[in-house]
């Protein structure tokens, strides 16, 4: 897919659409949806192809709103659906459902399983020589789940060079900091220890993400690559960035104002991405 708009503007548009969903709903997984908006922007704006059909797996399924924002910007879901997050009868449940939402490729939300689905799909595509690539976003809290290591071992063993795994290292999980609840990971050693190629990068910097992905695809070195995205939970709105815990928030009045303000200020980006000119 050709780059349509500036990646930075795409990321802003994603956050603005998520804000609209959350204002309509009154609560949501804002922290992890905002932290991945930049990598989502780069993937959906530039990398995910229709032919061959690439695969996107949001293993950290609770960031569904970020996925839906991209599908809206791609015009796979409609404007009226955006305000129905988690409403009765919605096609936008908090966690993605491949049989319910147009454009969603995998049903995720049970942590650990998305990455397993991704390795299965990558291996099947490799065997069938489709040329398709699989991009999978895994939460750093999700790495608590033992199944993620089973999947990484498999990716390593099968040299899944058509799979790119992005770890959203926002450093916080529901009950606190990852290093307190789980442990203080050394991702470089951890993933290198599994014989995977590791890239430690700034995960809220669209240029660094874009450059890294371009290098990986150009090198085509036969390895499975892991991008550890150093991100900020709630990135985009300083109020949430500074919050101790913004994993899932039932928004108070101040917070709703923050979200509304963000949406209003960035409506232009949404329209631009959608290709609508005022």
């Amino acid at each position: 897919m050709m780059r349509q708009v500036d990646n930075r503007e795409y990321a802003t548009a994603i956050r603005a659409v998520i804000s609209e969903m959350f204002v309509a709903r009154g609560d949501g997984h804002i922290g992890g949806s905002f932290s991945i908006a930049d990598v989502m922007a780069v993937l959906f704006n530039k990398y995910l192809r229709e032919d061959p059909k690439d695969w996107f797996v949001l293993s950290k399924g609770h960031a569904g709103p970020a996925y839906y924002a991209c599908l809206y910007l791609q015009k796979k879901i409609s404007k009226k659906d955006i305000t129905t997050l988690n409403a009765n009868g919605t096609i936008l449940p908090s966690h993605p459902d491949r049989n319910l939402t147009p454009g969603v490729q995998c049903s995720t939300g049970s942590l650990g399983q998305g990455i397993s689905q991704a390795v299965g799909i990558a291996y099947a595509n490799k065997l069938k020589k489709t040329g398709a690539l699989v991009y999978c976003i895994v939460g750093d809290g999700e790495l608590n789940e033992g199944e993620t290591y089973e999947a990484l071992e498999f990716a390593s063993n099968k040299k899944l060079n058509n799979l790119i795994i992005c770890i959203d290292s926002n450093k916080k999980q529901v009950d606190g900091l990852i290093k307190d609840v789980s442990c203080d990971y050394d991702y470089q050693k951890l993933f290198e220890g599994l014989d995977l190629t590791v890239h430690m990068i700034l995960g809220n910097d669209v240029e660094e993400i874009d450059d890294t992905l371009s290098e990986i695809l150009a090198a085509d070195d036969g390895n499975c690559h892991v991008l550890v995205l150093n991100t900020i939970k709630g990135k985009g709105i300083s109020y949430f960035e500074d919050a101790e815990n913004c994993h899932h928030v039932t928004f108070n009045e101040t917070e709703l104002k923050e979200l509304t303000k963000y949406r209003m200020e960035n409506e232009g980006a949404v329209k631009h991405v959608l290709g609508i000119t005022e």
């Binding site: 490729q105 995998c106 650990g112 399983q113 397993s116 689905q117 991704a118 390795v119 299965g120 799909i121 291996y123 099947a124 595509n125 065997l127 069938k128 489709t130 033992g146 199944e147 089973e150 999947a151 071992e153 498999f154 063993n157």
Partner: peptide
């Protein structure tokens, strides 16, 4: 390998192809 959870999710997902 001895990774049944991964096997179930990965194998089932291979059916998409």
């Amino acid at each position: 390998g001895i990774c049944e959870q991964n096997m179930i999710a990965a194998a089932a997902s291979m059916s998409v192809m």
